[in-house]
């Protein structure tokens, strides 16, 4: 382990380890051990289940918890109504699941659980995870688009008002930008989460390293780094929310293309 050598390895936090001796689990030759990543996905799902279940009292005059849950569903509902229109209502379960999973996974991964000896893990800092979400969103866009518009869906690549002499170029650019969507969705979330965690880890290594080399360096380097960490923790909480929002927003924009074309 890198930490044993007196250094903090900022990448170590992303290591995936099989848990509970499930290394040998496999389906059709693919090894599917229950890893720490899967554990935190499960925790995310569990916390989300508790959160939404707490808002299921269905009271006419809602309590605080019910207000919070209804606030999130209403937020997703408004997002879809604003971007897609009345047809967006049917995507609420998917966008809600997407947004809440990303949000809860991001926030749970930021919790200072190391204080009680648990190493938090952020599934959304792995592009294998964000890639699944992005491909699901992209697949839904393709399925809905072709189901609703058939081959007419390809008119998406020719925006209104394209001059005739650009007709040979614009569709290619539009096609490329369309095909890049799943990658940009997946990479944006994965990079944002990984960068934040690496930054926090690097700054914490500054704090630990400088404090170990004496009070002078500890006060010159360690204290400013620590203050910066506090600020960046707040920033990371913001990023956790913003990335979840961006993912949900872009998915709903892409769904709008599929529902309404241009």
């Amino acid at each position: 382990m890198a930490a044993e050598q007196g250094k903090v390895d900022p990448m170590h936090q992303f290591t995936i380890e099989p848990l509970f001796g499930t290394d040998h689990w496999s389906i059709a030759g693919y090894s599917i051990p229950f890893t720490n990543s899967a554990l935190w996905m499960a925790l995310t799902a569990g916390v989300l289940l508790l959160f939404v279940a707490g808002g299921m009292k269905r009271e006419l005059v809602p309590g605080r918890w019910q207000m919070a849950v209804e606030g999130f569903t209403g937020f997703i509902d408004n997002l879809l109504a604003a971007n897609i229109g009345p047809a967006g209502k049917k995507y609420v379960p998917y966008i809600f699941s997407l947004f809440m999973f990303i949000l809860f996974a991001n926030v749970l991964g930021l919790l200072p659980l190391m204080l009680v000896g648990v190493h938090p893990f952020t599934p959304t800092s792995h592009f294998t995870v964000t890639g699944v979400l992005a491909i699901m969103s992209f697949a839904i866009v393709l399925i809905v688009g072709f189901a609703r518009h058939g081959l007419h869906f390809f008119s998406l690549f020719v925006p209104h008002g394209t001059p005739w002499w650009l007709l040979w170029l614009i569709p290619i650019i539009e096609l490329i930008s369309f095909l890049v969507r799943p990658f940009s969705l997946a990479l944006r979330l994965f990079v944002a989460m990984m960068a934040g965690h690496v930054l926090l880890e690097v700054l914490s290594s500054f704090v630990i390293g400088s404090a170990n080399s004496g009070p002078l360096w500890g006060s010159i380097v360690g204290i400013p780094s620590f203050l910066l960490m506090i600020a960046i923790c707040a920033l990371e909480l913001l990023v956790a929310g913003i990335q979840a929002y961006v993912f949900a927003l872009l998915t709903s924009l892409y769904l709008n293309d599929a529902e309404n074309l241009h």
Binding site: P18, M41, V52, T73, S97, L133
Partner: peptide, 27 residues
């Protein structure tokens, strides 16, 4: 394989149980 499999398992759980089952009731 593990990442994709467990992601699909837990996201499927979230989508079908929470998204399809509970969110419509809240709304």
């Amino acid at each position: 394989a593990s990442q994709i499999f467990w992601m699909l398992v837990f996201f499927g759980f979230i989508f079908f149980v929470i998204g399809r089952g509970m969110v419509p009731k809240v709304m």
